[in-house]
Write a protein that binds this DNA or RNA. Structure first.
Lengths: 131, 131
DNA sequence: GCTTGACCTTCCCGTAACTGTAAGCCTCAT
DNA sequence: ATGAGGCTTACAGTTACGGGAAGGTCAAGC
């Protein structure tokens, strides 16, 4: 299978697949006699695996670790679970941070008339000289 | 005031302040005779303003727009409010996305024993050939 | 047999918002 | 005068790609 088709079935842009190869996340694909990348079933499974892990927010580095674990028939599931838990914790922190920023800003927005007049509690708050 | 002190009072690293100057977010600071950047009160207020806006998640571009509005004594507060609302909407989307990823992964984690054995529903799910 | 258009190739630049590092002045206290 | 710490510029690295140029390949159609 050539890269275009692989892109379709894996859900990853061809450009991204080449990128993954260039950074060593995946093994270099085989080549046809004319130099096109040729993918096997196993390669495609790997790319789908990567796509799913990435869609859950794992970084490339984390995906790399997951791939290693996936390919290790003897890994302890506790290792995978720990990695996943860490990622959930990271997401929790990000969610809390976003939520906090959102709450603060929402409060300011409520206080802002939002009409033609220039007075605006939002800018006033940003410009507060105390604090 | 020199950049080190400004960094302390504004909460922005000196490096970041230079960066903001380099991209044109702020006016180039004045200089002492020996070439050091010299900041006035107004510059410091601006940097604090930027720090607060950034801490609420506004992008540099958005901050730039906010600065323009801040410096425009005749702006309508509706403009500021619209910008802020847009940002809240962006954050809402990000929160929902993170939450969804987190929920999915949390479900998988619950199903994983996390012991010494290799069987792991998390990796199994990533590797599913259907879907 | 030749052209056309869809794919494929590599290579390099740009993105956001900085952070790290290097090499070299400036200032002040000892 | 010397050493520490702060300042300067400039360039590279980070994350995870996307855009676009210049050119090779392949199957279809005339």
């Amino acid at each position: 299978m050539k890269i275009g088709q692989v892109a379709e079935v894996s859900g990853l842009p061809a450009k991204t697949i080449r990128y993954y190869e260039s950074i060593g996340l995946i093994e270099p694909a085989g080549r046809t006699s004319s130099g096109y990348r040729a993918y096997q079933e196993r390669d495609i499974e790997t790319l789908k695996f990567i796509q799913r892990a990435r869609s859950l927010g794992f970084s490339i580095n984390e995906v790399s670790a997951l791939l290693t674990l996936w390919n290790d028939r003897n890994r302890a599931s506790s290792q995978v679970k720990a990695l996943a838990k860490q990622h959930v914790a990271d997401m929790d922190r990000k969610i809390a941070e976003l939520q906090s920023m959102k709450d603060t800003l929402s409060n300011l927005i409520e206080k802002c008339q939002g009409d033609h007049r220039p007075d605006c509690p939002i800018l006033n708050d940003f410009a507060k000289t105390d604090r």
